[in-house]
Structure formats: C-alpha cells, structure tokens
Design a protein around this nucleic acid. Structure first.
Lengths: 235, 235
DNA sequence: TTGGTCAACTGGTATATACCAGATAGTGTA
DNA sequence: TACACTATCTGGTATATACCAGTTGACCAA
C-alpha cells in the first residue's frame, strides 16, 4: 500500500476540476456512486473528499451532496473597498442578509476599545453574506453609536462604508486586523449551513475614524475556501 | 442521537486543555486507550481528534501520538521583525534548519517580478523553522542575487534581515502579502513530518528594497495552529 | 558501553455494515 | 390547482474488525 487508495481518488477529482471537466458549482456523484465505480467503501471515499475539502477544491451542503468550489475572492482589506464592490469587481454576485440587529450593553473588551463605560449601549449587527448565492461569511459587529447617531435607522444590509460616507461624511481609515486559520465555531458553522468543525478563517477587525476613535469592531467567519487575503505594506 | 458521541469527546478534551489539566506539549492517551475508556470505536475517536486538530487545540506526530498544541505565535509582518526576534519576544525558542540552497534559473514569474531575464540565476533557499523544537514552518525563497552579491557565502540559517542589515546596509521596506487557508501541499507536509492534506496556512511574500526593486520572494507553509497574523493598517 | 534485534505500541488505511436525519421529487388527494 | 404525504436519495454517525508501517524501549550480544 505504497500510495493509499484515497490518494488516487483525490488525484482523480483534482484532475477533473483542473481540466474543467467538473466546473465550479457542479455536483459530484454521491459517495455511494463513487464507491460503486471505484470499488471502495464510503470511509475511504470520505477521506479523499475531506482532503479535497481541506484543499478548498470542493465543499459540501448538508445531505445534499458535494460540489466544486468557486474560485476564491480576493479580499484586500487595506483598499477600504466594500464587500459589495470588490466581489462585484471580480465578477461575482454579492448579497447580504441581516440576521440580527439590536442595541446591547458593551462588554469589557468592547467598552475598553471604544473608550466608553462598560454596559453602555452599542449596536450589535449580525449578517450573512453570499457570493453567487453561496453563504461564505458570517459577520458579527459592534458599532459605536456615539459616533454614528441614528445609524440603527438605516438599511443595514447595505454596505456600511457607503452609509458612513453618505450620512456621516466618514470614511474607514486605520484598522487593526487579526487572522487565524481555525475551524468554525458552532454558531458560525450553523449560520453558514455547514457541519461544525470544518476549516475556516477567522478575522477580527477594528476600524478607526480619522481621529483614532473606534468606529466598529468586526468579527468575521469565512469559509476557508472562499477567500484569499492580499495586503500591501507601504512604509 | 441529538448530540453525537464525538462531540462529547471533543468537549471533554477541550475542557481538559482549557483547565490546564492537559498542558501544552503533553501527550493524549492513545486512540485505543480512549476507546476503551469511553466504549467507542477508533473511527468515532478519530473524528473527535481531527476536529480538535482543526480547532488547533491538538496536533499529531506520525505514529507517535496526539499532543496538545502550544499557543500560537503572533506574526506581525508589518513590524519587519525577524522570525527569531518575534518568536523569542513571545517567550518561545526559535531555531532554523537549512534544507537546501542552490543557484537556479529564474522561472517566468520570478523573472518578471525581479525584472531580470528568464533563466538568469537566482538563489533558492529552502528552510525549516521550529518553535520550541516543533517544526512549524517551511520556507521556500528566491533571492535576487544581483542586489545582494555574495549572499550565498553567508550562514543562511541566520536571520536574513540581519544579514541584510549587517552586510548590505539594507532593510526590508515595502512588501506584498497574500494569505490563503488551505491544506499543506505534499512537499511541505512531508518537510513538517505530518500527513499530507492537513490544514495549513500559505503565505506568499514579496519583499522590496527602498527603491521598489524585488529583493526576495518568499513562500511560507505554516502549521495552521502555530500562528496568528496581526496587521495594523495606517494610511 | 555500544550497537543490533525484536516485540509491542502508535497512528494510518481499509472493508463491511447499519441506522439516522435532512433534502427532494413524485404521487395522490382534496 | 394546491398541498400533504411518502419513498428515495443524500450525507452524518457509528460499530466491529483487520492489517500496514513507523516509533519506541527492552533485551541481548559483541
């Protein structure tokens, strides 16, 4: 058993995808069908499929099947472009769904960053964002209401950066970013409609105004295969 | 079967680690021992262990066992600190091993970036870097010899940024970074002594001189649990 | 003390099988 | 036509078992 069976399977599907015989979004045969074709058990087949998933080539929809992953979108945080804009520019179709919106008391971390007393109200916003109808990103953000009075009356499925510009004459300026490759926490996996424990990318972003005040704290949970991050550092 | 068995196991070990009853680096019981204790088969146990691995809490060494992951090091590319420096500052012990060093003809991409003819010599350097004796990072770099004559005679397990400063009075300045959460390619997994197909973080970095010339192109392959990336964007 | 052999232990790969639970599409009824 | 039901398909979870292939440590011989 010099090269394991699942390795052949991986190569097989990898080649099909590379040669465009299986294109983005198309469905793979069911695990049982593959098993019949290759005379392998589901355990072995799932090993191959999970590896391909880790590579980012395929993904699953719960009890619907395995599908070829679309190309990853390139996220360029330093450009200050909105999600809608950079997704559109790269030839995909973005959409946003608001899952929750409420005014909440600030916890310790939020309060400290925003330089407000613990328990003071902040606007919590919970959104799901799609690329070509595929949910790829869960966002949980805490917005500094003091700097943006009346923000809660806006349509918060819209791009925040556009609301900022239009209503408050503000723009994103400085930001602190933190990236971690890890599995998705249960709540995020659930919101994305995928099994918990699957690989993901977590981003924490702190947005500042031009006056070094914290405008917004953003926790993002991405499908790991949906995004590549590019950053240019210029001193 | 509202909550699956592997979920209990995950929680069990997750709690042990959180409460420091299992500390960084310590070995978990063998899969068969766990199976006896919890009356579960290895398939179920491995599902739990793989999920914990995806979370970054544990990792495996081929046929040696499962171990608790050390805390991730924080990599702050924009700070221009060397690997040795930031790892040391965070209380870990770094080391570097040179796996290969050779002069190679530039391929198309390298040549274009460095603005030299295709096939012109570049210095290829292949290193493995450790944190507390654990291999965490494979580096494959292409160095622009034209800008750094005699670089190949240096001790290339040393920090490159220090060599640059000492011998060439150069410093890292601008850089382009690209991050992708994906599984490790076979060559990198092999160099890290882990099974292929495990989750990882790939970084591509292009370093420029103060005069916008490409000094070095760097491909990094990290264990995904070994690193968190922080970046401050200041306009 | 050194070095080699080997048994025991570890995770890695694989078969065969079973049942659960969500998704889907077709059927039949009101 | 509208809708509820249902058979079937899908992946999700799990048991039991087997053998392979590095790792390790104990033991023995030089």
């Amino acid at each position: 058993m010099s090269t394991p069976h699942y390795h052949y399977l991986q190569q097989y599907f990898s080649d099909l995808i590379a040669s465009q015989q299986l294109v983005s979004g198309s469905k793979l045969p069911s695990e049982r069908e593959i098993g019949e074709q290759f005379k392998l058990t589901r355990v072995t087949i799932r090993q191959a499929l999970k590896n391909l998933e880790a590579e980012g080539l395929i993904y699953r929809q719960n009890r619907r099947g395995w599908f070829v992953s679309p190309a990853a979108v390139i996220y360029h945080p330093a450009s200050h472009l909105s999600f809608n804009l950079y997704v559109t520019e790269q030839g995909f179709s973005p959409s946003t769904e608001k899952l929750a919106q409420q005014v909440e008391p600030a916890n310790e971390r939020i309060a400290q960053l925003m330089n407000i007393p613990i328990g003071n109200p902040v606007l919590y916003l919970h959104r799901r964002r799609y690329i070509d109808q595929r949910p790829v990103l869960i966002e949980k953000m805490y917005i500094n209401q003091n700097l943006l009075p009346g923000i809660e009356e806006e349509d918060l499925t819209e791009s925040l950066s556009q609301i900022l510009k239009r209503k408050y004459q503000q723009e994103y300026r400085d930001m602190d970013l933190s990236f971690k490759s890890t599995s998705l926490p249960a709540h995020a996996a659930n919101d994305l409609g995928i099994a918990a424990g699957q690989p993901g990318l977590q981003i924490e972003r702190i947005n500042y105004t031009g006056h070094k005040q914290v405008l917004e704290i953003d926790y993002e949970f991405w499908r790991h295969d949906a995004v590549t991050i590019n950053i240019a550092i210029r001193d």
